[in-house]
Design a protein around this nucleic acid. Structure first.
Lengths: 189, 189
DNA sequence: AACTTATCCGGAGAACCCTCCGCCAAACAA
DNA sequence: TTGTTTGGCGGAGGGTTCTCCGGATAAGTT
């Protein structure tokens, strides 16, 4: 059949793809703004090849952090097992913030992606699902307003995207922001 | 003295500067992403000239909307005269949102500027002052938490920057966001 | 073995951003 | 009048992003 053929054909593509990802990972660790040009060059590959594998810069970055994002989204369940819904929600948001701040490029990608709705497929799917998960648990526990949607939550904490990861005080400001935002999401009594 | 000389020398510069601004205004009304190249060309001026007058793209956009921003910041005082602090605050934020959404390019400029701290001089000055003004009035009236800073407020409503001005429902989402954010900024009782 | 087809590769090329430097012309000084 | 200084002008040039298409290579076909 053609399965073997497809696999073999893919084999070449997958090699260069893996090579690109590896190089990109190194490059992004060195500096947080890297030209796609240099990545292609360092991978010993034409720029066109890079663009066929990753049509946009976001696609590349997403792929780099795919597993990290998955780990993050899966964490929502674990946190809910080990903590109260309220605590789990807060802990998850802090983890979210840390991911966004720590991983070079991820912040910007998450931000623009959310804005353009493209995020809906690649990132918003899992991330919004995680938010939804935590949200529902908290609504049942009565610790979050019953009329909230995941979209509301993501907008409420969008200030995170404004923080400067290279500034010293991002952690303090993130904490502060989450305090205020969560206040607004709690049920009014 | 040299004053006359300076004025005359400036006269030429001011003409091309004005011409650049005029062309830029037209161009930005046609489409919301314009190349600086095309602006220079349409103004019949070298690209270098444009860059000397407006070292960055943000500088140009800021200048385009400078009067609008001033009108916005001044509005804080007027609103406080005519409404309760709480109402004034809300009305001002809605106006802020409308400005950011309506004027092409302004949204992005405000956002990046806030993030990079550069806003501190050009935009944050006036804008943060307006926020501060409203903030203090509300704190005295007991309608906003006493421990808030202007920075807190701007971060809390930063979700506005995530809205897509070309989407139909930005107004609804902006409303919603402000509702939630303001909830979080009210004093806990 | 020769031919066809699908898949992948590579880089030229257009458009853009931004910098840098040489040129001009007005203002001033000798 | 003839330098000299100074503010302003223009565009070449290096770097980037992204597109597009011709060439190679391997799989399948006759």
């Amino acid at each position: 059949m053609s399965t073997k053929r497809v696999e073999q054909l893919h084999a070449q593509g997958l090699r260069t793809r893996a090579s690109l990802l590896e190089v990109a990972r190194e490059a992004f660790e060195e500096s947080r703004d890297v030209s796609l040009n240099s990545i292609a060059k360092r991978a010993g590959v034409g720029i066109g090849t890079l663009y066929r594998h990753f049509p946009t810069r976001e696609d590349l970055v997403f792929e780099l952090y795919r597993d990290q994002v998955q780990r993050l989204t899966r964490a929502s369940g674990e946190l809910l097992d080990e903590h109260s819904p309220q605590e789990a929600f807060r802990l998850w948001l802090e983890r979210f913030a840390r991911y966004a701040m720590t991983k070079a490029g991820l912040l910007e990608v998450l931000r623009t992606a959310t804005a353009h709705g493209r995020f809906a497929q690649v990132g918003r799917g899992p991330v919004a699902d995680a938010v939804e998960h935590l949200l529902v648990a908290n609504q049942q526990a009565g610790t979050l307003r019953a009329d909230l949607t995941a979209d509301d939550v993501l907008l409420a904490v969008a200030g995170l995207y404004q923080l400067d990861p290279s500034a010293e005080d991002w952690e303090r400001r993130a904490h502060r922001l989450l305090d205020l935002a969560l206040c607004g999401l709690r049920p009014r009594d």
